[in-house]
Design a protein around this nucleic acid. Structure first.
Lengths: 194, 194
DNA sequence: GAGGTTTTTTGAACATTGTTCAAATTTTTT
DNA sequence: AAAAAATTTGAACAATGTTCAAAAAACCTC
């Protein structure tokens, strides 16, 4: 029983990983249940044994990537340096996810399009966990006198919006390199707190 | 002939206006061809006489709203004041569109999800027209010595991203009023150029 | 390891929605 | 009024997500 359910959970995870790969290859909109099932050598009907519906599957893909991002951001925060250094690292980290895991990380941006109304609260919650990491570095930085006193929530929204937007226009074969871009973003965005 | 085609154009526009209304009511994803047709008292088959497909219709809805926005932004730019004043007005204007015509203006954000690949270039072009308005105020402001010398494109992307993001979290019944929000955004975003 | 129980998979059917198109209808022109 | 052009219809189709009863496979108990 415990055993069976672990096995089930493992398969669920394998499906999620597979779906993430497909989504990052084909794009969110063009990923079908058929494709996901086929990649797992099963029929699409079986997927509904593991996931209530497509959006549930998508949600779990999103969640997994978001969990990884949260971990990475915690690292970025913990590492030594001023609050400016911490925030700079976090900006780098976020842009990296936004660009390199576009299709899955992406869903943060417009969850209404990716998920059903009933699932929204659950997403928003995890998204908030992520957001709080930025609130923390900003408000601690303000407390330490390193950043200018500001409306933390608004600052956070400006930061996230600016960074998420990158993935709508950045192209790997474009004029500017990703590292250069990250530096510029960090430089400019830190001005918000000066 | 000229007459017929004008009539056709008028009906096309009436369909677009109707579709915009439905989208802003029901949301982008939940607007069907059936609904649009029904609201116009016609069958969905007929819609294909006026639009190649759904995405074509959506594109034209988007285009119309974007055209209006471009006009409004030009006004905001022309009105008197420093470049800071101009940019402040433009920020207010943009946030207004992003929040109040969310569903149609919105599509700017993730065109890949709303449109077909073939239609993208055409969208990007108009989007660029819009973006150039921001480039202009920023670079002229720099030229006039009012703004600090900066990478205009990056600044533009930060501005647009930050502003577009507002519509993902702002709720009319929330804690902060839209006017207050616009002021805060303008205040912080102008710091980017200090 | 046989028999029963639970878990998993299947495959067919269904629902929704976008799309096509030949034919019918309406409108316009001559 | 006849011919031509423009518009609309309605039925069919295609693609996909979803359901579900039945079959198959895996597991468990004695």
């Amino acid at each position: 029983m415990r055993n069976a359910s672990r096995k089930q959970q493992e398969k669920r995870e394998r499906i999620i990983l597979s779906a993430i790969a497909i989504m990052n290859r084909e794009g969110f909109k063009y990923t079908t249940m058929e494709q996901v099932a086929s990649e797992m050598r099963m029929t699409k009907g079986s997927l509904y044994y593991y996931f209530r519906n497509k959006q549930d599957l998508m949600f779990q893909c999103h969640e997994l990537v978001l969990d990884q991002a949260i971990e990475d951001q915690k690292e970025a925060f913990k590492a030594e340096g001023t609050y400016g250094d911490k925030l700079r690292r976090m900006i780098h980290c976020h842009i990296d996810y936004a660009v390199n895991r576009k299709e899955t990380f992406n869903m943060i941006i417009q969850p209404e399009q990716a998920f059903e109304k009933g699932q929204l609260p659950s997403i928003v919650e995890k998204r908030d966990d992520y957001a709080r990491l930025f609130d923390r570095v900003v408000s601690e930085g303000i407390g330490a006198g390193e950043f200018q006193n500001s409306d933390v929530k608004i600052i956070r929204m400006i930061l996230l919006g600016a960074m998420n937007w990158v993935q709508t226009w950045y192209r790997k074969d474009g004029l500017i390199g990703l590292d250069e871009l990250k530096d510029l973003y960090a430089e400019y965005l830190l001005k918000l707190l000066k």
